[in-house]
Design a protein around this nucleic acid. Sequence first.
RNA 1: GCCGACGUAGCUCAACGGUAGAGCAGCUGAUUCGUAAUCAGCAGGUUGCCGGUUCAAUCCCGGCCGUCGGCUCCA
Length: 616
Amino acid sequence: MTLQELAKSRGKAKVAIAARVDGALVDLSRPAPENGEVAWVTPADPDGIEIVRHSTAHVMAAAVKELFPDARITIGPSIENGFYYDFDVESPFTPEDLARIEEKMAEIVRADLPFTREVVGKEEARGRFPGEPYKEELLADIPDETVSLYRVGNFLDLCRGPHVPSSGKVGVFKLMNTAGAYWRGDSKNRMLTRIYGCAFASKKELDAHLALLEEIKKRDHRRLGKELDLFSVNDDIGAGLILWHPKGSVVRRIMEDFWRNEHARAGYDLVFSPHIAKLDLWRVSGHLDYYRQSMFGSIEVEGQDYQLKPMNCPFHIQIYKSKLRSYRDLPVRYAELGTVYRYEPSGTLHGLLRVRGFTQDDAHLFLRPDQLDEEIFSLLDFTLFVLQRFGFDRYDVFLSTRPEKYAGTPENWAKAEEALKKALERKGLPYEVDPGEGVFYGPKIDIKIKDMLGRSWQCSTIQVDFNNPERFDAVFTGEDGTSHRAIMIHRALMGSLERFFGVLVEHYAGAFPVWLAPVQVDVLPVTDRQSDYVRDVVSRLRAEGFRTEGDFRNEKLGYKIRESQLRKVPYALVVGDREEAQRQVAPRKRGGEQLPPMSIEEFLEKLRGEAEQTTH
RNA sequence: GCCGACGUAGCUCAACGGUAGAGCAGCUGAUUCGUAAUCAGCAGGUUGCCGGUUCAAUCCCGGCCGUCGGCUCCA
């Protein structure tokens, strides 16, 4: 008896698309186990939808092969929300091609063709893919003696499976776009054409996903940056170089002020360093060996090579080294909003999130070895405090360990990894290990914040460095009167101000909380009879430090309200004859909520309270 | 950097091998208005840049710059 028949007898045939037997996911065409221990897998299960997506990829490949027999097939896995399949074709698919492929897929789904599985020897499998060099290459790399092949209609593919029993079980899907992708993800290989699609168990889920994509589009910081006049990039200035407009600059200034105040309070010394330095500095630091391809070209000055700085650390080290340091002086903490320049390939630039010039909220801490654990621990506290202030209280923590290409000794690496681990555990933060993802000079803790839509953004990083103190000979005089090597921590909390700002824009969908809003209050006269009083109100609010604008244009109230709302100003104060007579204002929140008229003092009180919050 | 798409007024977009049009924004005037767009008029463009084909290019071709979707990368 097959699982399919068993499913039928148990009334599960309609919903089951695969089964879990002894922990393994299997096709329903497989024999049912003697003892009958079976867990049915449906499209509603995480495993189930993954199978559906994978099968959808096969259906798509089947459609492509019918329409474009010359297309060479490669691989096609399921991914988050859907699937893709990579093809080697002479000319990439056009949007019209996608529509045709989608139609053909619908045909295959309607025909409800069975997915059949067969297991063959590797040698035999080779003969089954004539004219498919990629499949041959894949086969050559499989160590097993036998492989499984799946057929749907005329389309045969090398595949581990499992799959849905028939193409009719493929759910709701939509082809999204095409993209170039290197064979096996290696930029030295041929570029293939990838088709992305999304697939879900129900129309409702697909619609929800498309709605989410719409929402993401609406929140896109590049779009909002233009609409709200926050920043721009300019062809004549250069790709990846950000112009902060006045409104964006207000937000940045507030971010910076907050950052400086909190750092001064937390025992940091604030420093400044130049934008260029002799190339040799980065030879010593090791950056040249490891990251030359990410640095801008050097600048020759009077026979000496200078370099636009890609990092701030060597400068801070030199400040540290400018005099003898006692063990009593440590930890020394230097913090700087340091603007660095990195050559990012043109194709990777993306709004504020990936740029060529950016300002790191950088700091370098110089410690005695016995201070490492404690310092990392309090650093974690500090980091989470700062993130929380900006409205982020959900995050994932990663511990990245030694990469293939590294500097320093394995012993020091182990020590540093241990220190980071200990701090995380003491703090009770759940974390994941990212093996091999450390920086060349040391392991790190990365904190990825989650925004309102649940998307993750890498911002904070805490990196231990035994390497640079050695290269630059950063030392302190110990209690014993001899020289000891300092340990360094590199850390950034927001990461880059540009990037963090971009994330903030998307997090709040441009509707910044009161404390960050570029304009906090619009005061709107109903007619120009109230002009004088409104001018009064504006200057009262400004005197209290609130960013306030009066809208004296010759427009109707509805027009001014609409504009205020579109600019996402937290409060619009409506002022007509009634309010003026009572020396009041009528506040309207940006969401549309109308508050009862109140005195300016009352409104100020309310505003002060909200400016303390991060979420309004 | 690689593959593909795209680049038209400040913004969003339309049109075309014979030197371009709408809405919004802007300016001028009228209107003095109560919680998401008052009306009318005016003005606005070397169609990203450079070169080629053509009697003629914004349109076709090539190069460059930039943007977008991915891939690779991301100290």
